[in-house]
C-alpha cells in the first residue's frame, strides 16, 4: 500500500489502524480507492451507478470486522460517496468508518458520506465513526455524514460517533428505523472550538413492538463554536426510548439542545434529559487539591467527560 506519513497518521486517528487491518477493509484516499480486501462471507463491491461501495456481510458471520476509512490529504476536494451495508441474519460485526482530513491549503476539503445500513433479523452491528481534521491551511475542513439504519426484528445496532476538534463544519443527519425487539444504543462525543460549527440531527423511529432506542450525547463547546442538537424519538408501538443530551459550555460558545419526544402509541415510554452547563467549579478545585494546575484540571475533566 502506498501510504506516506500523513496518511498513516490519519488512518491511526480515524480507525486506530497501525498496519493493514486484519479483517475486510476498503481504504479511500482523495476520492479514489486505495486498497480493498474482501473476506469469505464479507464482500465489498464498488457501486456501478455512482461512487461508493456495497458491503455485504453474509448471514451467520461472527467476530469479524470491516474497516472503511476515508482520508483526504489535499485541499480543494469535494468527495461524495454512497455506501450501503447489508448485515446478514444473525451476523455480528464491527464496522469502523471515519474520515481524516489533512488540509494545508487555502481551499476547502469536503467529504460527504451517505451511509445506509440494513441489519437483518437477529444481527448485531457495532459501528464506530471518528472524524479527525488537521493541517495548517486556511481552507475549511467539512464533513456532512448522513446515516440511515434499518434495524430488523431482534437486531441490535451500537453506534459510537466521535468528533474531537479539527472539523470546521459538520452537519450530521442520522435516521434509525427500529423493528420488533430491535435495539439501538447511540453514543455521540463532540468537541468544537475556534469558530467551528456542528449540527447533529437524529431521528429514532421506534416502529416495532418492544423496540428500544437510547441516544446519549456528550459535548464540549469551546471558544466561539456553535453546536446544535436536534434529537427526536418517535414511539409508534409498545417501546422504550431515552435521550440524554449533556453539554459543557465554555468561553463564548453557543449550544442549543432540542430533544423531542413524539408518541403515537399509548404504550410508548419516552424520556429525555438535556443539560447545558459550565465545568463544575468543585471538580476543578478537587483536582487542584491533588496538585494539578487549573489548566491541567480542566484538561483532565474534559478528557474524562468525552472518553
Amino acid at each position: 500500500m502506498k501510504l506516506n506519513a500523513v496518511d498513516e497518521r490519519l488512518l491511526k486517528e480515524v480507525a486506530q489502524l497501525h498496519t493493514v487491518p486484519s479483517g475486510a477493509y476498503n481504504i479511500r484516499k482523495n476520492g479514489q480507492l486505495l486498497e480493498r480486501n474482501s473476506l469469505p462471507g464479507i464482500n465489498i463491491f464498488s457501486k456501478k451507478d455512482r461512487s461508493g461501495i456495497d458491503v455485504i456481510v453474509d448471514p451467520d458471520i461472527v467476530n469479524q470486522s470491516v474497516h472503511i476509512p476515508v482520508i483526504l490529504s489535499e485541499g480543494g476536494l469535494d468527495d461524495l460517496v454512497y455506501n450501503t451495508f447489508e448485515i446478514g441474519e444473525n451476523s455480528e460485526v464491527l464496522i469502523v468508518a471515519g474520515c481524516g482530513i489533512h488540509n494545508d491549503s487555502a481551499l476547502q476539503s469536503k467529504h460527504d458520506g451517505i451511509h445506509e445500513f440494513y441489519l437483518r433479523k437477529g444481527s448485531k452491528m457495532r459501528y464506530v465513526e471518528k472524524h479527525y481534521g488537521e493541517g495548517e491551511g486556511t481552507g475549511e475542513r467539512v464533513l456532512n455524514p448522513v446515516t440511515k439504519i434499518h434495524i430488523e426484528e431482534g437486531a441490535t445496532a451500537e453506534l459510537e460517533l466521535v468528533q474531537i476538534g479539527g472539523i470546521d463544519h459538520t452537519k450530521r443527519v442520522t435516521e434509525v428505523y427500529i423493528g420488533e425487539r430491535g435495539r439501538l444504543v447511540m453514543n455521540e462525543r463532540l468537541l468544537t472550538h475556534k469558530s467551528q460549527q456542528a449540527v447533529s440531527e437524529v431521528t429514532v423511529d421506534l416502529q416495532g413492538a418492544d423496540s428500544s432506542g437510547e441516544v446519549l450525547s456528550r459535548s464540549v463547546a469551546q471558544e466561539k463554536s456553535l453546536q446544535i442538537f436536534r434529537i427526536s424519538l418517535i414511539g409508534r408501538s409498545r417501546c422504550k426510548g431515552h435521550v440524554a443530551c449533556d453539554s459543557i459550555i465554555m468561553d463564548q460558545a453557543d449550544v442549543r439542545s432540542q430533544p423531542e419526544l413524539c408518541a403515537k402509541n399509548a404504550l410508548a415510554e419516552l424520556t429525555h434529559e438535556a443539560a447545558i452547563g459550565k465545568l463544575a467549579g468543585d471538580q476543578i478545585i478537587k483536582l487542584m487539591t491533588f496538585g494539578l494546575s487549573e489548566e491541567e484540571a480542566i484538561r483532565v475533566l474534559l478528557d474524562g467527560y468525552l472518553k
Partner: peptide
Amino acid sequence: CSISERAFKGVRYAFQNPPRFKGI
C-alpha cells in the same frame, strides 16, 4: 499560594461533599 502549590507542599484535604466526575 494557590491550591495546587499548597498541594505540592503537602497540604491535602478530603472534602465534606466530594464532587463526582463523569468518565474518570
